[in-house]
Design a protein around this nucleic acid. Structure first.
Lengths: 270, 270
DNA sequence: CATTGAGTCCCATATCCTGAGAAACTGGGG
DNA sequence: CCCCAGTTTCTCAGGATATGGGACTCAATG
């Protein structure tokens, strides 16, 4: 769905196909039968079958009792290992919880990957409309507060690279649809220190984000607070931003991102 | 590490290799360079390189700033999707939290996959020695309370199948090392309704588990409470077991596992 | 400056994957 | 009970596809 045509200089057909299978099963709400997989991906049934058997041997997919396929728990294992290397998530959690307690709105923790932001954690207030975000999923930068927050503190070179790769898809009336508009928005963000998404991604949803800077003032991620526009009003923005800044400061301290530049950045790449 | 030789009738070399790469990166504490990957897996430099490039294109691995490779966040995405299909985890969480509050020990939620148990959630008490379990990882059935709890309520056929496939690796002095011994242990578990792991997996760690039964009284998982032996004493076992039973009952109710047998089990395979 | 080791890239070859097709199931309905 | 349609499983020979030898670059080291 996201990147339908995985082209590139290096190719291993079998891998592209295998990931296409996993993608398909991941997108699907319900488990799929062999025939469905084969036809969806235009694979020969015997090819699809072989792939599924191999994937099953690796526990990347598993079969339900009625013989259909769905994603396997090995992926869950891998996912946890992957995220573990970012101990950011773990360290940030207590701070996020406090933030949620203070604001009573949903908080997200994100990092930038390539030209998109990935949600690596979400904390929801005790009772609230449940947000539809899925941890692990990614969004474009141009229509999210976290995207703009990170963008604003990136070196110019990275910014233009990312803007070049962004498609500026429209989601609502207010979605920022051009690179120029986003540039002025970034400027604004940089000045006031926090980014706002005012129903630019979803009707009725307002978000506000602050970047998380490492010792070199490089944005390693961002924290946001999101809620329905009628609760997250314009007047409340500064107050929420303040909570966000406190939260981010706490995380920075925990991560050892003190202003004194660290001697090595080996363990903490962008 | 776990299953070093992924043999089977169906084979796709490229996939086996790709997963070996992911495995390697997942096991490794630190990111690895191309040369390390190639030599660890006995792959040619150029082969390893191509795989890593393709995996990177799919975001299954990513490069740190110093050019080394580690697991990518796409895996995190997949992992979350995989676990989402088990809404068990989500539903169970509040109950687990309460259980942890009551017992002040760590709680785990597990399911059975093939012949091993997989930890799909872990809740830790506010302050406690941190347990080393990693969510998503799997353990054999014979040395864990959850394994025994599930085993005890499985149909005979499945039990013998699993016992046949278990290697009865020893971890401590007390590890149950034979199928016969495990059988009598299972019998005991069935009678008293809860399973105990008395330092059978790790020195000084005692666990107690209760199975989570669906409407057909089929064990879909298990919940356990674990803590240092000096706190989780023999006298406390019945009391903890009681909390566990309450917890599991709550989850069952939430999942709709009422005693009245449900009309369809399509959505809930083993 | 030579040397060593890591990473990137190209290309002819043989290996490994592909997909046609047939067999084995499954589960309705007549 | 039998047949049929749909699905899954299995086999095999041909050829597309991944393989790995090797050349090249770059950086670090002596």
């Amino acid at each position: 769905m996201r990147d339908a045509a995985p082209q590139g200089t290096y190719k291993v057909q079998a891998l592209d196909r295998a990931f296409a299978v996993l993608d398909l099963l991941g997108e699907s709400e319900t488990p799929l039968g062999l025939a469905q997989v084969a036809s969806s991906l235009q694979l020969h049934k015997s090819t699809a079958h072989r792939f599924l058997m191999v994937l099953e041997r690796h526990h990347m997919v598993e079969r339900t009792t009625n013989g259909k396929f769905r994603l396997g728990l090995r992926l869950f294992d891998f996912g946890n290992r992957a995220i573990e290397q970012y101990d950011l998530r773990e360290r940030a959690q207590p701070h996020l919880r406090r933030l949620v307690a203070e604001t009573e709105e949903t908080a997200h923790l994100c990092v930038l990957e390539q030209a998109r932001v990935i949600y690596i954690d979400k904390i929801e207030p005790a009772r609230s409309v449940r947000m539809i975000t899925r941890i692990g999923s990614s969004n474009p930068v141009h229509c999210t507060s976290v995207g703009k927050a990170i963008l604003a503190f990136l070196p110019e070179e990275r910014i233009s690279d990312i803007l070049r790769r962004t498609k500026f898809e429209r989601f609502t009336q207010r979605t920022i649809a051009t690179a120029e508009a986003l540039r002025t928005e970034i400027e604004k963000t940089r000045r006031r220190g926090y980014a706002v998404d005012d129903e630019e991604y979803e009707e009725g949803l307002r978000c506000i984000a602050v970047p998380l800077l490492d010792a070199q003032r490089f944005p390693v991620g961002a924290v946001s607070v999101s809620g329905p526009s009628f609760r997250v009003t314009a007047q409340k923005l500064p107050s929420i931003a303040n909570h966000l800044v406190q939260c981010v400061r706490g995380i920075s301290a925990d991560m050892g991102f003190t202003s004194a530049s660290r001697n090595s950045r080996v363990a903490w790449p962008a």
